[in-house]
Amino acid sequence: MKIKLLLLISMVFIGFIVSTTSNVVASNYDIGVEKGDSFTWKCNICDKKKMEDLFGKNWDSNGTGLFEELKRGNQMRLTVKETDKDFKIYNPSSLKNEEFFSITFKKWIWTNDDTWGDYDYKDQITHYSDPKDYSDDLIFPNCAPIWLPLPLDDYLKEIDLYEGYSIDTRSRTITAISCEIKKYDLKGDYPTEYINIHAIYNDQGILESYKLYIENHQIIIEIVLESNSIPPMIEFFIPVILVIFYLGIIYLMYKKVLIG
């Protein structure tokens, strides 16, 4: 009798949930950075000759400036000056004001000068407030922008991206963009051979790691966001410490917890 009652209650409960859940889950996009936030990237790998072969002589002067004077071992810094969630630009072809998310920042282009000094220039990155406003078959400059609105995966899913893109979402793994570009698929018959870009983003929607590969995952460019909190010397030992810690936990589990 008790079991029957339990089953009946479960069925009613399940029915209630199914009937009350909506088909639509609203997505409110947001800017994950704030005024004053500062980000520094380091270039660990940059094969300039190969980049020239792939994209021609002007490879470092296009896009969002991510590659501007890029050199192995150099650093680039952005400091957010202003964020705007209701930035509007008049579009003469649609005769409408289009809405954007925008961040204005001070930029220090790739340099090996540790003192940084004065910034090189001010710049702005914008993204449509509604990702559906992007044109079809979109390829971002450098395939992966420095910053994206949050939640990043929902935002990207709404864009009709170029066929080579695949987006990993945070529930299964980390938030990352992969973009495969076939030979001669870009304007000007570039790249001259197959390339694959893999970009990882942090919780603020900021580019955390950018890797550009050619065939067989031979890396041509690697750019990483530097952590402010961990000094580089300690960062080097983190994997070693984690291996020891990890193996220690497993050993303890094997010996003490999972008792035969």
Binding site: S166, D168, R172, T173, I174, A176, S178, E180, N196, H198, I200, H217
Partner: peptide, 9 residues
């Protein structure tokens, strides 16, 4: 395909 490239657990 590119999928296996993605870092995961």
């Amino acid at each position: 395909g590119s999928n296996p490239l993605t870092i995961n657990f």
